[in-house]
Design a protein around this nucleic acid. Structure first.
Lengths: 134, 134, 134, 134
DNA sequence: GTGGTCTAGACCACA
DNA sequence: GTGGTCTAGACCACA
């Protein structure tokens, strides 16, 4: 399967997998309601310990990104369950602050960041947007 | 001293300190050329082991954020050393992708992110700019 | 294990270990992809604190000489990652300048140095080359 | 005076000074018999602690590079005192090994090193050679 | 007084 | 079992 995992990365494998799944959904590569591969299958095709896959799936379920149906398998949730908008906005704001700080130390200007954000939006969400509007 | 450290966090203490120092510099709270508190002093005032402080300082020096002068102490570097702009831009782009993906799953729109970014720029960098020019 | 460490030397132990590992790889004693001994194992067999081994391994990873895979262990990197050739050439040139200066004060002629270099190349790299192609 | 000292370097200042003096002599910038600046003067012009200068001078005297004449000052020694040629050759050989190992990990070939050595000899010693043959 | 290194011993996340 | 982090306490080179 098409998940990009780097076992030599400092980011834990289960975390990488979580990010990859979220990215695939945001990009529309994985559509709401779509069935996820079995833990065993994915473990096999990625060459990763099944327990690690399992951990990622569990976390994704906790976040409401995936849904497990008893003995039917795991599926992509229908829509992003918004719990606490204010909290979520604060979290994103914090992430942006971190980006700005890193950018500052790399000599990247706010304007350059804005341009990068525009690019990122175009590349990432629009692609997903088409799929979602089907 | 005024660094925000949470020993209970899952983020390693030395990493938190690295982030705090970078943030302080980006905000202009710490000016280029300014002397950092002694490893021992900071260890004492933060209630942290000196080795942990030392580790953070060393990593920051590797990144070119701090400079330590033999037995004189550690100082804020004069300017963000720009190494490989293309690589840095790619890194920031990747961070923004991550923000967008997280935001997507939290039901936050691209427009809302743009607004948050504007706010972040205003609060963070501008504050530093004013402080520095005072 | 076969690393030559002298705890009485003025060169820090972790630095000595770094040098020894690099030498072993250049000589072909350690092949790309090969698994390094465990931090604990090496610490035990060298009679050194595990933290010191860990520090050396981490520095070597930063340099791209070793790669550590999550809870699988540490491995010799596949190939010397070339980053900035010009910078590397300058660094080597500087090292050679230092050798020449030392040699000058020891009454050693440039021709003698050239001969020594030929010998060193024969003994060091060729040995590695043969070993690797066996 | 014209010595290149970087207080932010990881190399101790007294060591940098030792290297600079040796380099100046090898390049012929400092001629045998020439008078070295006073410890106090040099300390002043380099902005360095006099004790540090003193330490460097002492080490250089131990190596036979400088000679102190009672209350007359410190002078560049007449010629490199060769003590144990075999030992010196071994020392240089070891330095060359280190260069080769570093070069290997930077993806630099033996041939490239040979070229760099030729360049270094031309730039460094020849310049000094002229002065010495005067 | 400054940072750098090392030890012994402990706990933790990850796979 | 793997490496990563942290502590408390010690010693050292450098300036």
């Amino acid at each position: 399967m098409w998940f990009n995992i780097n076992p030599a990365s400092s980011i834990p494998i289960y975390m990488q997998l979580i990010n990859e799944v979220k990215a695939a959904i945001a990009r529309g590569v994985l559509a709401p309601g779509e069935r996820m591969p079995t833990v065993r299958d994915l473990a096999c095709s990625l060459g990763i310990n099944p327990l690690t896959i399992s951990k990622a799936y569990q976390k994704l379920e906790q976040e409401g990104v995936l849904v497990t149906m008893r003995s039917r398998g795991t599926f992509v949730a229908q829509k992003p369950a918004i719990t606490d908008k204010t909290a979520e906005l604060a979290k994103v704001r914090e992430m942006l602050d971190r980006v700005l700080i890193e950018a500052y130390h790399a000599g990247i200007t706010p304007d350059e960041i804005k341009t990068l954000l525009e690019e990122s939006i175009r590349d990432l969400i629009l692609k997903g947007g088409n799929k979602q509007s089907e």
